[in-house]
Simulated assay, not measured.
Amino acid sequence: MEQFELKKIKNLLDVNLMDLVTESKKEGFRFLERLINDYKNGTNNFSKSGEVLYGVFNKEGLLIAIGGINKDPFSTNKRTGRLRRFYVSKEYRRMGVGRSLVTRILKDASENYEIIVLYTDTEDANKFYTSVGFIKDNSVSKSTHSLNL
């Protein structure tokens, strides 16, 4: 990961996300567009206690991956976090970028959460998440995977 820089995103509006948004939409994903809309309208700006948003930037300073953690809005357990808005540019997949990003997010999450859940509907994402320790589990509302910290 020497050619990449993983940074906490303090203000999403200061980051150029358009290339990632365009790429993700071509793959059929709309969640990065929702990330921007939710951030702008204040619905979700990763600013509550225990929440964080990270970006990975290449050596040219372009955002190549993004992901964050929120308190799970679908759970009554305050110690349940939800991995959200996780996306790695196709060009940078299978290079350790996603693994480094999720590892950092989970490290931060361990201070505030006992369990992390997420939702995905793709087999590639399922393979990735199980490779980093998540198990297929839909016992928490609107989730497909979980990880006990």
Rank of each mutant, 00 (worst) to 15 (best):
S139Y: 00
F31C: 07
G133C: 11
D137Q: 06
R93L: 08
N44G: 00
E27V: 00
K142C: 03
T103P: 00
E123M: 12
R79K: 15
R34A: 12
K71G: 03
I64E: 00
D19N: 13
Y54A: 00
F86G: 06
K127H: 14
L35R: 07
I135R: 15
G98K: 02
R79Q: 06
K90A: 13
K25Y: 04
S139D: 04
D121V: 02
F31L: 09
I36C: 12
L149H: 10
F4T: 05
E111C: 03
Q3E: 10
L20N: 12
A109L: 07
G81T: 06
K136Q: 10
Y92A: 04
V88W: 05
Y119A: 04
T76C: 07
F31S: 06
K48Q: 13
S141Y: 08
T76V: 07
V140R: 05
Y87C: 10
D38Y: 14
S131I: 11
E27Q: 08
I9N: 04
K107Y: 14
L83D: 00
Y119P: 01
F29V: 00
T120F: 12
T130I: 07
I64R: 00
L118A: 08
N37V: 13
T130M: 10
L149Y: 03
Y113L: 06
Q3P: 01
L12M: 06
I69A: 05
I9G: 12
R99K: 15
N112W: 11
R93G: 02
I69Y: 08
I116F: 07
A109R: 11
T130W: 04
V117G: 03
G81A: 11
R84E: 12
E111Q: 12
L13N: 12
F4G: 00
G67D: 08
S131P: 03
L35D: 05
V117Q: 02
L147I: 15
V132P: 07
I66R: 12
L118G: 05
R85C: 08
Y119C: 00
V140A: 01
T130Q: 14
N16Y: 01
R85N: 13
D72S: 12
G96W: 10
R84V: 15
V132A: 10
S89N: 11
K8V: 13
F134G: 13
T120C: 01
L17Y: 04
K142N: 14
K10F: 06
T103E: 13
K48V: 01
D124M: 13
G61T: 09
K25L: 11
K48E: 15
G81K: 09
L13E: 15
L12Y: 01
G68K: 11
A109S: 14
Y129M: 07
D124F: 11
N16C: 06
S49W: 00
N58T: 01
G42H: 08
G81C: 11
R34E: 15
S110D: 04
I105P: 12
S143H: 05
N148K: 14
D121K: 08
M18F: 11
M95E: 09
T76Y: 01
N16Q: 10
M95F: 11
L35S: 07
L12W: 01
Y129N: 05
N58I: 05
E123Q: 13
L63S: 06
D124K: 13
K48F: 08
Y39C: 04
K127T: 14
V132S: 09
E111K: 15
G98S: 11
A65G: 09
R34S: 15
L53T: 02
F29Q: 07
K40Q: 12
D72C: 15
G50Y: 01
L12V: 02
I135W: 04
K25Q: 13
H145D: 14
